[in-house]
Amino acid sequence: MADNGAHPTEEDPAAAFLAQQENEIAGIENDGDAFGTLEGAEPATLNGDLFQESNGPTDSYAAIAQVDIQRQEPESLRKWREEQKARLEALDSASKAAEEEWRVKAKKELEDWHVHQNEQMEKNKTNNRLCPSLARASEEAFLAETDSNSPGSEWERVARLCDFNPKTNKQAKDVSRMRSVLISLKQTPLVR
């Protein structure tokens, strides 16, 4: 056996450290107390002697307090954080108020729409009930007009079907381009 400078009676400090880490990890995996001593963990040995870790206070709350003292923020950061928290709270309350306002407005608009829709339906129902003969007559007149295919009367039929008054309905789609195309085709027909 080659002599590498280590004596067989001495224990390797790296091996002791690795054994200690494995014991701590095993304790954590077994839901042991992470801040206190591990249950069932054997104390690490160095040269056959037991030793206790001394990285800081043994009381966990004292260790947390010591870390807090070491990590105290500068005054400017603390002040900024407080101002930022107040600003975010103000923004949250403003957004909640705006959301509630939108909700109330949407509810009112929906109720108004339902009222208008119901009024329109009732008006249509009464018109249909009171004037069924008028509805039939207008339908028959429309069908008679569409069935007449006399040559040269195509544009008159198109003109009857299209509303060329641009100010009739403000809520309808813009059909000014189509209207201008139809007028230009009427004035100068396509050559076939």
Rank of each mutant, 00 (worst) to 15 (best):
A6F: 09
L130P: 00
W80S: 06
G36P: 00
A172P: 00
A19C: 00
N165V: 07
T126Q: 12
W102K: 09
V181L: 14
Q66V: 09
E10I: 07
V175Y: 15
D33L: 02
E145M: 14
E145A: 13
A15E: 04
E111M: 08
K186Q: 15
D174Q: 03
I25R: 06
E156I: 13
A172L: 13
T37A: 08
M121A: 12
E83F: 04
H116D: 13
F35C: 02
N149P: 01
I183E: 14
G27I: 00
K123N: 08
E140Q: 10
P151Q: 11
N149G: 12
D163C: 14
A6D: 06
T146W: 13
Q70S: 10
E111R: 07
E145Y: 10
L91W: 12
A135N: 10
E140F: 11
I64R: 05
R71H: 04
N47V: 00
E119P: 00
D147Q: 15
E145L: 13
K167H: 13
W80D: 08
D49C: 04
Q84A: 14
E119I: 05
A137E: 07
E83P: 01
S133E: 11
A63N: 01
L50V: 09
A2M: 07
L190V: 14
E109N: 02
R192M: 06
C131Q: 08
L185Q: 08
K79Q: 13
L77A: 08
E82T: 10
D33Q: 02
M178G: 05
A97V: 05
I25S: 02
E53N: 09
R129I: 08
E73H: 03
A86T: 08
N4M: 05
G5M: 04
A97D: 14
L161D: 05
M178S: 09
A135Q: 11
R81V: 04
E89Y: 02
N169T: 10
G32Q: 10
P57Q: 04
E42S: 03
E24Q: 04
S138L: 15
N47G: 09
